[in-house]
């Protein structure tokens, strides 16, 4: 269970957490008539069946999952009406590893430290501080007016014809290029290493989780192996531990770290990073901080338009 995470508690060592692709969750929530910051389900590698006890609108965004409502396939980024008693099934993804499901009426769990997200590292928040298990019952709030209109509107069609841009609903790629900006320790690596960092392919290793994606490939050697003083790290930070194998930090990462920070994945590319799974081949491409901000502003403008567009469908 994840929402947009815990923002104000990093000084106490609490991770931001939240949906690893917060944009996907926002879009899924918009599609079902929820507040964008509502909690949804983060589904990792599928194998989930949800039975509904009343009529709800659902929508999901993320990896290349095969999602079925009975015998009907529900594509990413489309709002679907689930009738009471129906089952929604998530099978294994062909590409990527996670997706986010928005359910109209919002998931109703207590807010802990400003968020409904489950902190799996410390086991608090969300649903009893743990991942969902067989037989769990999830409480939902009431459908919003918008969601109720969608229930009426989709009575015949069942699945909305409208959907967001494809790269919002399906950001996963097997061989992605992640755009990065320089980290504060960029200059501690020599030119050759930097060149290789931005040219060579890195392979996602098995011990990756919500804290970070570990990569195999060429060894990133530092010029001098001096000890650094621990300071803040953020989701997107690419750390290089002494072994030279980079780690891309994700939402559940620690709040401080002492490894050199070679670079940071820019915010708009975190959705792609959140989909990386074992064996995926990653490359990095350097962009400027200004570009990172421009891209973020553009996406936000597009989202604002999408928000308006969504409202028009239910008039």
């Amino acid at each position: 269970m994840q929402d947009l995470g815990r923002l104000g508690f990093r000084q106490f060592g609490v991770s931001v957490g939240g949906a690893l692709d917060s944009h996907a969750l926002r879009v899924a929530n918009l599609l079902v008539g929820n507040d964008e910051s509502a909690a949804g389900l983060e589904i990792t590698l599928g194998g989930l069946r949800l039975r509904f006890v009343d009529d709800r609108i659902v929508a999901w965004c993320g990896g290349g999952f095969d999602v079925r409502l009975g015998s009907t396939s529900v594509a990413a980024g489309h709002a679907a009406l689930v009738r009471s008693g129906q089952e929604l099934m998530f099978n294994q993804p062909k590409v990527g590893c996670r997706c986010w499901l928005g359910i109209s009426g919002e998931i109703d769990v207590p807010i802990v430290l400003g968020s409904r997200s489950t902190d799996l590292r410390t086991n608090f928040g969300g649903f009893d501080g743990r991942a969902l298990r067989d037989g769990d019952e999830i409480a939902l709030g009431r459908n919003s007016k918008h969601a109720q209109s969608l229930v009426d509107l989709l009575r015949e069609q069942r699945i909305s014809p409208w959907s967001p841009p494809h790269d919002w609903s399906s950001p996963a790629q097997r061989e992605p290029i992640l755009r990065v900006m320089r980290g504060s320790d960029w200059n501690r690596f020599n030119d050759v290493t930097i060149q290789r960092f931005t040219n060579e392919v890195f392979i996602v290793s098995p011990d990756s989780d919500r804290m970070g994606v570990r990569l195999e490939g060429i060894e990133l050697k530092r010029n001098h192996d001096i000890d650094l003083i621990s300071e803040a790290v953020v989701p997107g930070t690419i750390q290089v531990p002494p072994g030279g194998k980079p780690i891309v930090l994700l939402g559940d990462c620690q709040t401080i770290g002492g490894y050199p920070k070679i670079a940071h994945v820019i915010s708009v590319d975190l959705p792609i990073a959140a989909q990386l799974r074992v064996g995926d081949r990653v490359r990095f491409h350097e962009v400027s901080l200004t570009e990172a901000h421009q891209l973020l502003a553009e996406r936000e403008r597009d989202l604002a338009e999408f928000r308006v567009g969504i409202k028009l469908h239910v008039r």
Partner: peptide
Amino acid sequence: GLAPAYTTVAVFFDP
């Protein structure tokens, strides 16, 4: 958000 560490203060912002 703000978070201090040994020699630094991290300033988190919404761009």
